[in-house]
Nucleic acid binder design. Structure first.
Length: 300
DNA sequence: AATTTGCGCAACCGCTTCGAT
DNA sequence: GATCGAAGCGGTTGCGCAAAT
């Protein structure tokens, strides 16, 4: 026996929403809120739609602060950075960009940004020291904050870092100590040393980074003083002036692994970009030098 | 002008996670 | 701790439109 359907599919409208339906949903939510129950909402609002469909329509289209299209270069960079770091967790990425939805970012990535990257048209700014920086002048980032310097509890959960969570689910002090420690060595915005927690889909072999961290550290050094960061999961973007040096050892390339070029996953994509980066130093695309062997070091 | 092809995006599907009981 | 319903999420699909032929 299969899973029970979330709604009576025979009695709900499907497909594109009409302007009337949009108005009904918008008016209802503006008046009553979602009531914390999307399943019941369409019935209350008088809509012949599935609750999930209503939720999606509201979150991705009708919400008043939604932006569509017109992604800026800075947004491109943020998306690239996070994709490199955490993969296709679009909701986490969307949380960093004011007015953007996960669906929008996902579509943008799949249809445009990925191609842009492959063409080498997206890149973080590079300093003369071959460091990667981002421009902090943007106002598109979520409320001027660049979050995820320290992962939220939800992110810790998502990463499977149960060690970092107390039994009651709150972030443990050891977790924060660990993350503050990382802050002193690593990139202040992204948890890139957690790359070892992500498999490398599509690679012919997958090295076990987790059991050999002494020799295989992905690391980043940062010029930013971060020791004063609070346990808040975000800090003002305008205060950031970090310059980040990427270095890698023990990665796919070091071990002579050959990525397939189907780009099934983030690491495939960025591994693929490495080759472009090497052949075009000037136009090194976003994180193209991540796998570069020019600055191998074991930090920590 | 008609047809085909490719692209972008909204919406759907089904699985996972969360929270209440 | 087990169960169940709802929410959340990422992958996929399908439609509409524009460009190419």
């Amino acid at each position: 026996m299969g899973r029970a359907p979330c709604c009576d599919k025979a009695n709900v409208n499907r497909g594109p929403w009409s302007p009337d339906e949009d108005n009904i949903l918008r008016n209802f939510i503006e008046k009553h809120g979602t009531g914390g129950n999307w399943i019941a909402l369409p019935r209350k609002a008088g809509l012949k739609r599935c609750g999930k469909s209503c939720r999606l329509r509201w979150l991705n289209y009708l919400r008043p602060d939604i932006k569509h299209g017109g992604f800026t270069e800075e947004e491109d960079n943020v998306i690239c950075s996070f994709y490199r770091s955490i993969g296709s967790r679009w909701s986490v990425i969307a949380a960093q960009l004011q007015g953007r939805t996960d669906n929008d970012i996902k579509n943008y990535w799949n249809t445009k940004l990925k191609k842009k990257l492959l063409a080498g048209k997206v890149g973080l700014n590079k300093t003369s020291n071959n460091e990667i920086t981002t421009d902090s002048s943007t106002s598109n980032l979520n409320s001027g904050q660049f979050s995820a310097s320290i992962p939220s509890e939800a992110e810790a959960r998502a990463y499977g870092n149960s060690d970092y969570l107390n039994a009651n689910g709150s972030t443990s002090s050891s977790y924060m100590t660990e993350m503050n420690h990382r802050q002193n060595y690593d990139y202040p915005g992204l948890i890139l040393d957690q790359i070892d927690q992500f498999p490398l889909p599509g690679l012919m072999e997958v090295p076990d980074y987790s059991t050999s961290t002494a020799n295989n550290n992905y690391s980043m050094s940062s010029s930013q003083e971060v020791s004063s960061l609070s346990n808040s999961s975000s800090f003002p973007m305008e205060n950031m002036s970090y310059a980040t040096t990427w270095s890698g050892k023990g990665g796919a390339e070091d071990q002579g692994l050959v990525p397939d070029l189907d780009f099934d996953g983030p690491h495939d994509l960025f591994s693929g970009l490495t080759f472009q980066a090497k052949s075009s130093e000037e136009d090194a695309p976003c994180f193209g030098n991540f796998y570069s062997t020019t600055s191998l070091s074991n930090s920590y």
